[in-house]
Structures are given as C-alpha cells and as structure tokens.
C-alpha cells in the first residue's frame, strides 16, 4: 500500500515537474520516464538541443599537474560521468592543469567526440584571447569547443566580439559569459539584457539564492541557458549537512543523499539548464549523476527543501 502510494506520488511529482517545466515558455523539456531510468535533460533555449541537467566541473578537482596516478583517476571519474549519461564538462585556463588533465582523460576513454566541451577565455589582454582558446583546444585534444564563455567578465566587451565572430565562422556553437560566488551580478545583468548570449554561468545553491531575484528571471525572459557553478558552495554545504538526517520525504524526489538533494534543488529551478558540480571522487560522481534521474521537485517541494535545510544548518 505504501509502495503504491509512493509510486503514485512520485508520478504525481514527475507530472508536476513536467507541468512546471512546460509552463516556462518552452525552456523545459525534461525527458522523464515512469521510473528512474531516463536521463533528465533540458533544452538549450537558443537551439533546443537537449543537455543533461548534471555536468562536470573541473575547478580544483582536475588540477593535478603531471601526477600519473591522479591523471588516471581523472579519466576514471570522466568514464563514470559518461557512463551515467553525462555530456557537459567545463573548464578554464584559470584552473591550472585541469585542461590537459581533461584532454588526457578524454583521449584515454575515447570520448573526444562525445563530450559537450565547455571552456572559457580568461585574459586581460584582448589580443591574446584567440591564442589562449586555441591553446585550450589543443589541451582538450578536441576539434572544437561547443561553448566558449568569457570567464568572470574579464575584458568581456572584446572577448564577446571575438566569440561572436568564432560562432559565425562555425568554430564554436554557443557563446556565454560567467561569474562566480555572487560577484558583479549588476554588471552581469546589464550584459544579459543587451548581448545575444546563448549561455550564462553563475553560482546558485539552496542557501545562496540571490540569483533567483534577478538573474534567473532575466535568463528565462531572454531565453539564455543557465549553467550553475558551486551548487555545493565548494563542498562547504556538504560538510555542513554531513551527519544530519535527510528528510523522509526526500525519497519522493528520488534523493538518497545530500548531494542529490542539493543538486535536484538547483536544477529544478525553471530557468536553470544544468549544474556542474566538480569532484575527483568516483563515488561522488555516481552520487551526483543520480540527480539526473527520477523526479524533480516542484515549487511547493522546493520551498519545503529550503525550509528544512535552513532549519538544520
């Protein structure tokens, strides 16, 4: 009886999530199944290309230098990521040796053609942008990036011009811009209002919801895909919640642990396209990718999640 109730409720939650997604001007199109076996994807607004809601970040975790043991571990993490249906991997020239590590991993697991490659241009010298992006491409060992973003708004006027040209020439498919840990949202908002961006990336999580006020609303209105970085506040949130009980109702949204709970909160926002948690742990990438399956919370459930977390933190 209880199982039947749970199944019905789960289907209801999925239906609600589907309805919620449908009500956001076509931004959402999660591919739910009746059970937990179908990967949840959302469309990139500017192309309708579906992308899994969980990607893979590389800040800190893939910056391992030339350590052969750690490089093989990076390849294993990526293998698990792809096996679980993941596609988007994000990096930056700022992340030390992360780019060569990704290139090593992609080559080792033969996934250079399957990855949705996302990188950034990060230089104060506008003339150096093209050279830096070419260097990044060589590190990744791929033909071309899918998405290239201006990192942390650095020299964004010049770099965006270059990126638009590259997009026109077919060298990249999407153009974006990023910021992190809540910096310079006013300036980012102005850019989002005026520039024809495909993607924007910023920080958002269950305890830091500043982005909900303006950026997420604006992204939805302007048809810009949103990538969320630091969904765990660089791991601080997981540390704070470790040892605290997951609510019993978490199973209604198919969450078995805190990372899934936190990720589902993030990617269930109607304007969010995907989140890119970073990890170097095989178990963690499995946990994270499980958030790509099952039910997503609806608006009421999201409120309940916030209330619960704020009570126990």
């Amino acid at each position: 009886m209880k199982n039947q109730y749970n199944q019905s409720r789960r289907r209801f939650m999925q239906f609600l999530a589907l309805g919620m997604s449908g009500s956001v001007g076509g931004l959402f199109n999660p591919r739910f199944s009746q059970a937990n076996s179908t990967l949840i994807s959302k469309p990139i607004p500017s192309s309708n290309e579906p992308i899994p809601v969980i990607g893979l970040g590389s800040s800190r975790t893939f910056n391992v230098g030339d350590d052969p043991v750690a490089l093989d571990n990076v390849a294993k993490v990526m293998q698990h990521f792809f096996n679980a249906g993941g596609r988007m991997i994000d990096s930056s020239p700022m992340y030390g040796s992360s780019q060569p590590a990704i290139g090593y991993g992609l080559n080792k697991i033969a996934k250079t053609k399957d990855v949705f490659a996302v990188d950034k241009v990060w230089t104060w010298d506008a003339e150096m942008g093209t050279e830096q992006m070419e260097q990044s491409r060589q590190y990744w060992n791929i033909d071309a990036f899918d998405l290239m973003q201006v990192h942390n708004l650095v020299e964004w006027e010049h770099h965006l011009e270059t990126l638009y040209e590259m997009k026109q020439q077919g060298k990249i498919r999407y153009v974006g811009i990023t910021t992190s840990h809540g910096r310079r949202h006013d300036e980012l908002e102005d850019i989002m209002k005026t520039e024809p961006l495909d993607f924007v990336q910023f920080s958002y999580n269950i305890v830091d919801r500043e982005a909900e006020r303006r950026l997420l609303t604006l992204a939805k209105k302007r048809g810009i895909a949103v990538i969320i970085n630091r969904p765990f506040q660089r791991g601080d949130l997981i540390d704070e919640l470790e040892g605290k009980p997951l609510p019993k109702w978490a199973k209604d949204i198919d969450c078995k642990n805190w990372p899934q709970f936190l990720l589902k909160f993030v990617v269930s926002h109607p304007a969010v396209t995907c989140a890119i948690p970073a990890t170097s742990q095989l178990e963690h990438v499995k946990e994270n990718m499980a958030a790509c399956y099952g039910a997503l919370p609806d608006k009421a459930m999201r409120t309940r999640m916030i209330d619960y977390v704020e009570k126990i933190i």
């Binding site: 800040s59 230098g65 992360s98």
Partner: peptide, 18 residues
C-alpha cells in the same frame, strides 16, 4: 579592475591532497 574582485583563495585552485 576585475582583479580587485578576486580573493587569494580564488587562486588556490588545487586540493590539499594534490
């Protein structure tokens, strides 16, 4: 000017283990 928006910890982009 963008440099002022960075903190030192933003440049510590490696783990303790690494």
């Amino acid at each position: 000017g963008e440099m002022t928006s960075y903190r030192l910890s933003d440049f510590i982009l490696f783990s303790q283990a690494t």
